[in-house]
Amino acid sequence: MRKRGQNSWTFTVDVGTDAQGKKEREFKTLKVTDPTLLRAPKRLQEYLETELTKFKLEALAGQHKKHGKMLFSKFLEEYWEVNFVNIDLEEKTQASYLFHRKKRIEPYFGHMYMDQIETTHILKFMQLLRHPNARADGTGPLKSATLVYNYRVLKSIFSKAMEWKIIKENPMTGIKKPKEDDVKQMEVYDEKEIKLLFEALDYESLQLRTAITLAITTGIRRGEMAALEWTKIDFERGHLYITQSIPKMKDGQPILKPPKNGKPRRIVLSETELAELRLLKAERDAELTDLPDQWGDGKYSFVFCHPDGMPYDPQWFTKKWIDFHRRHQLKAIRFHDLRHTSISWMIYKQVHSEVIAKRAGHSNIKMLEIYGHIFESVEQAAASVFNDIKKG
């Protein structure tokens, strides 16, 4: 890609060699007339790279029409460049795509030519995913969410192939999205189970006790808890600020991201929660005096971390929670279900829905509809308050 004029660029694509071994190239000149693009260097660069990739695919497709056809595996390389490399996507999104591409999609379709893939091939692939031992380790069936993910990736791939004129017909046409009929429903603790949980926490380390207490009383997400820093806790006002999240670790290092929905929020803490946090901070400060070398040059102050200050992998919370509820023979629920328990309990206690949504970090109260069964019981209780008036 070379800039040729004030607002124009020339694309050059190598498409192979001719019979004499001479390189064959395709050229295209693109003029950008959108003033908003020209004023935004980053957006302009992304646009140019996308257009270059499109032209490259068109040129290669034309070459393949002369000497053969475009392989699915070759198209995937370009699809990856446009949809993942040049766009700032979540690390988890990229990792998930690469896993399914390498383990399932590419092994099945990689050797096939794009214009030879038919609807029946897609149907057979989806049927293969439904095999009783389709998991990567061969120990059981895939969850319906995995089937849906593969379906969506294939749909995106062939839609892009149509857009770039690599194929004339979309083999995904007429294929229905798999039903998600095995989605695990949320489970929550009732009042008795919450009491048992807090009784069991009395026998645990201060760090684990604080983590589980915060999860069930504030409803913060696992990644948000992993990224929580002491600088985000205002002990005087009793406020906790959620400003970042660690969705996962990459190459042993944390990936810091904004919280879900990209919106920071404030959570008011009770005196009990503040007391636990003060104890944990005192314990942490004592550890720091013995460690001159801190992770990240000491510029971070993670609440839940290794002795050198490096934050725990979000998986740490899940593993510790599973070990905890098993040892104390509590009802087995997911760590994320502690968040559901927190929200459900606030609903049961008739806290205003807007306050709940704000505290939980939901973009609006519509997200609370998944707790409809709890709202129903609360509404029934609300209706019954008029019984006394009627009796009087």
Rank of each mutant, 00 (worst) to 15 (best):
F302Y: 12
K22W: 06
A275M: 10
F375N: 00
K263I: 12
G68N: 06
L330T: 09
T210S: 15
F235A: 11
T272S: 08
K391F: 02
E77Q: 15
V355T: 15
S156D: 11
L338G: 06
M186E: 04
F75L: 06
N86P: 00
K23F: 15
Q329G: 05
I220R: 01
G252F: 02
T289R: 10
K358G: 03
M112Y: 14
W230Q: 09
K248C: 15
R237N: 15
F302I: 07
K54P: 01
Y113D: 06
L154D: 03
I87H: 12
A332Q: 13
Y348P: 11
E58L: 09
L206A: 14
T218Q: 03
I105N: 09
G262H: 06
V385W: 09
E106G: 04
T218F: 04
A275N: 14
Y348D: 14
E180R: 11
H373D: 12
F75P: 00
V355P: 06
F99M: 10
S363T: 10
M346L: 14
K54G: 02
L338T: 00
P258K: 14
T173G: 01
K165W: 03
W230M: 06
R278W: 02
I166Y: 03
P247V: 00
D190K: 08
Y149W: 05
R104A: 06
H373K: 11
E229H: 07
K102C: 07
I175A: 08
E58T: 13
H67S: 13
F324L: 13
F302V: 11
G110N: 08
L52R: 11
P178Q: 10
P247R: 08
S156L: 09
M249T: 11
K155W: 10
M249F: 14
T10F: 07
W316Q: 12
D181G: 13
K331S: 06
S73H: 12
K124M: 09
D14A: 06
Q6N: 13
A40D: 15
V351I: 14
P107S: 08
Q207V: 05
R221L: 08
P254D: 04
L228S: 04
K391L: 05
A136K: 11
G252M: 04
P259C: 13
Y241M: 13
L76E: 07
K56H: 10
L142Q: 02
K358T: 14
Q350W: 05
F335C: 09
I370E: 09
G238M: 02
E236A: 12
I216G: 01
M249W: 06
Q20C: 10
P247F: 10
P292W: 06
V32H: 00
G392A: 13
K390I: 07
I389G: 13
F55G: 01
R237E: 13
A145Q: 10
T119V: 09
G223C: 02
H121D: 13
G361D: 03
G140A: 05
L214D: 01
E24D: 03
K184W: 01
I105R: 05
D323L: 12
I343H: 01
I333F: 01
R2S: 07
A357Q: 08
L291E: 08
W345E: 02
Q253Y: 13
G174E: 03
T17V: 14
P107E: 07
I255P: 01
A282D: 12
Q294T: 07
T289M: 14
V268L: 06
E163R: 08
K92P: 00
G252C: 08
S384I: 09
P314C: 08
